[in-house]
Design a protein around this nucleic acid. Structure first.
Length: 654
RNA sequence: GCGUCCGUGGCGCAACUGGAUAGCGCAUCGGUCUUCGGAACCGAGGGUUGCAGGUUCGAAUCCUGCCGGGCGUGCCA
């Protein structure tokens, strides 16, 4: 049910033959922010003031006379400078919610202009452990895929794996030199990730070691500069402030980098075995890069190892996806596009878009100072090259109307360049969108790490959330009070899993995707406030009351229950339910899942209010009881569907 | 330096893309009900939306300039 566009159309019609392009004004019909102004409000009279050279209140008056709303609304009211306040008729609400309750699609229509979306999300690096940074892209991308599909679009979920990068050189080198055969035999995934971490630690150590003295010199310089600025202030107070701040900032930044270097050095220096390896394998980074280059060049031995490692690492990645309930249609990694790269570069050179500069092949774009480099001076290709090849491939094979890249905001400039270049290559009729998102931060406001400073593996993170959920939700006293004492251990574990994973997802999705957010498991699994658990609980409550009613309520039977809107809380709940489709459309307008989370939360709140104020099983009359049960049922369906579109599961009891 | 995003009650975030008295959740304080599973409901305090101008009927939102911060910035992804 699209209430908003229904109202907008009516107003647009009312303007036909009165103003030019009536369509452009209809978006000024919006949901009322304040309930005292009705359910919806039309704000167009004010902006038509100059167009019609008339007093806005007069315009509003005339609009009200022209607009055809009798079947939907009560008599519109004009307020303030020319606001038109609209209030839906109760009969209309009751009629529509009755339709919603018996419809598996909850009266959400399938798009008439169905489009094909390619959504590029998750994209972990094979052979590197997944961590908290992969949650956002995976969860946001998955939610968008689910919502767009539900709205009737064709969605191609493509996991653009990093399976061809420098990390392979590192594990190839590490595998040859550091592997523990018995461990690899028994637990290849764990052993591979141990090998990767070992090489990475040594790389970090060896790179940091020579940089430390330089950094200390820099620190001394920066401190001296600061001292000079402090000692001999600029006469201009403003200049002085600026200089002081710049000097302090540079001290701080050098200090930061020194502490970074120190921690990398410490990580190896404090572990004798590692230190020994580091000394026995000088220049390990260079050696690893060499292995990568050999692999790219087609070296049989290295490719054989690549073939061996990829499935092992995918096992781990897939298990994380299973747990998160995320699926892809395609998993074309970088390696898939590798054979196409030289062709891309050749075509760009031939068409004059790319040329050589300082040994590298570059695409210069007017909009940017720095070029997009597509081939390094040593002949290697870059991620720009792969991304261009990927666009070519997708355009040819999927013919999408839109390609969405769910990637963090730091790559913003890369995508801007990529899109400009793609346009120049002739791909003009496709929406290219960088659905960017902010960083996941730890308690201290810096990118999320464990106490020891390393990034925490995703599986451990999920375990922690599930444990926290179990502690809160499956507390014995609580279960006792809720009449759930007989739940088996298996059931409580399953509930904790659903709640824990849902908590992480909800916390992520409910934050505006463009901003950073602090990752705090304890807050996420809270039962009070705006959390996934609260929503799941409200769903369970709808289940509980319906079960108690012993009415065998279902989509087939609920149609027989007539709806009465006796109380304000009922009416508000119904209006909320009917706004589901408008919210979904709004959610994909700019690809903000938080629009949907905010709606589901407000629906749950509204249900809680209704539940508090309107007795259901103890309703005064049988008709009222049935009506309210039908509202519980409709709420249950919308909550379930809404959460499902976010990738969040529900349980009937918790 | 340049580019880009951001600054909203103590904290974490909204505000339907320019609408009416800026909302919500934590936290704090008070109240309701002998519960349809208190994870409930109602109420209170707390804000000059970083600052200063401008645009107009109207600005948290648009423009300009400051102040403060994140991120990016030619051969990593």
């Amino acid at each position: 049910m699209q209430i908003l566009s229904l109202l907008q159309e009516r107003f647009s019609h009312a303007l036909d033959g009165w103003v030019e392009n009536p369509e452009q004004y209809k978006q000024q019909v919006v949901e009322a922010r304040d309930a005292r102004h009705g359910d919806y409000q039309a704000n167009l009279a004010m902006s038509l003031k100059n167009v019609l050279s008339k007093n806005p209140r007069e315009i509003a008056q005339e609009l009200v006379e022209r607009v055809e709303l009798d079947d939907i609304c009560l008599q519109p009211e004009i307020a303030g400078p020319g606001f038109i306040n609209l209030r839906l008729k109760d009969e209309f609400l009751a009629e529509q919610v009755a339709k919603l309750a018996v419809d598996p699609r909850l009266t959400v229509s399938e798009a008439t202009d169905s489009k094909t979306f390619v959504i590029d999300y998750s994209s972990p690096n094979v052979a590197k452990p997944m961590h908290v940074g992969h949650i956002r892209t995976t969860v946001i991308g998955d939610a968008l895929a689910r919502i767009l599909r539900f709205l009737g679009h064709d969605v191609i979920a493509d996991n653009h794996l990093g399976d061809w990068g420098t990390q392979f050189g590192m594990i190839i080198y590490g595998y040859r030199n550091f592997r523990d055969d018995a461990a690899f035999e028994q637990q290849p995934v764990a052993e591979l990730s141990r090998i990767y971490r070992t090489v990475q630690a040594i790389v970090g150590y060896q790179a940091a070691l020579p940089k430390l003295p330089e950094a200390e010199v820099k620190l001394a310089e920066a401190q001296e500069t600061l001292a000079v600025v402090e000692a001999s202030p600029d006469e201009d107070a403003k200049q002085q402030k600026k200089k002081l701040k710049a000097a302090k900032r540079s001290v701080r930044s050098v200090e930061d980098s020194i502490s970074g270097l120190n921690s990398k050095i410490q990580a190896v220096a404090s572990a004798p075995e590692l230190l020994k390896l580091a000394e026995g394998h000088p220049e390990i980074e260079k050696r690893s890069q060499l292995e990568t280059a050999k692999m790219h060049a087609g070296d049989a031995a290295n490719l054989e190892l690549w073939e061996k490692f990829v499935p092992i690492s995918m096992e781990e990645i897939d298990s994380a996806y299973r747990r998160l309930g995320v699926e892809f249609d395609y998993t074309y990694g970088e390696s898939f596009y590798h054979p196409m790269l030289s062709g891309v570069v050749e075509r760009l050179k031939d068409s004059g878009l790319a040329r050589e500069d300082k040994g590298a092949i570059c695409v210069f774009l007017d909009e940017f100072e720095t070029p997009m480099i597509i081939q390094k001076s040593d002949g290697a290709f870059l991620y720009s090259t792969t991304d261009l090849a990927t666009i070519e491939y997708r355009m040819e094979h999927f013919k999408p109307d839109a390609i969405l890249y769910v990637v963090d905001h730091r790559q913003g400039e890369h995508f801007e360049k990529l899109f400009v270049a793609a346009r120049k290559m002739g791909y003009r009729d496709v929406e290219l969108q960088h659905v960017s998102f902010g960083t996941v931060l730890g308690e201290d406001g810096t990118p999320f790490k464990t106490r020891s400073g390393t990034v925490m593996g995703l599986d451990l993170l999920l375990d922690e959330a599930v444990q926290a959920a179990h502690a809160v939700v499956c507390d014995e006293e609580r279960l006792e009070k809720g009449g759930l004492a007989e739940l088996s251990k298996e059931e409580t574990l399953r509930i904790a899993e659903t709640v824990g994973i849902g908590a992480i997802k909800y916390a992520d999705l409910s934050h505006n995707r463009t901003s950073d957010y602090k990752f705090n498991i304890k807050e996420m699994v809270q039962l009070a406030g705006e959390t996934g658990a609260y929503l799941q609980y409200m769903y369970a409550r709808t289940c509980s009351i319906i079960a108690r009613s012993e009415t065998n309520l279902s989509m087939e039977t609920v149609g027989g229950f007539e709806i009465y809107l006796a109380e304000q809380a009922e009416r508000d709940l119904v209006l909320k339910l009917l706004q589901f489709e408008d919210v979904l459309l709004n959610t994909v307008e700019e690809y903000y899942p938080s629009v949907l989370t905010a709606y589901i939360y407000s629906l749950a709140k509204q249900f809680a209010l209704f539940f508090d104020q309107c007795p259901v099983l103890k309703a005064e009359t049988r008709e009222l009881k049935e009506s309210r049960l039908a509202l519980c049922f409709a709420t249950q369906q919308v909550l379930k569907q809404g959460l499902e579109l976010l990738g969040i599961g529900v349980v009937p009891r918790m």
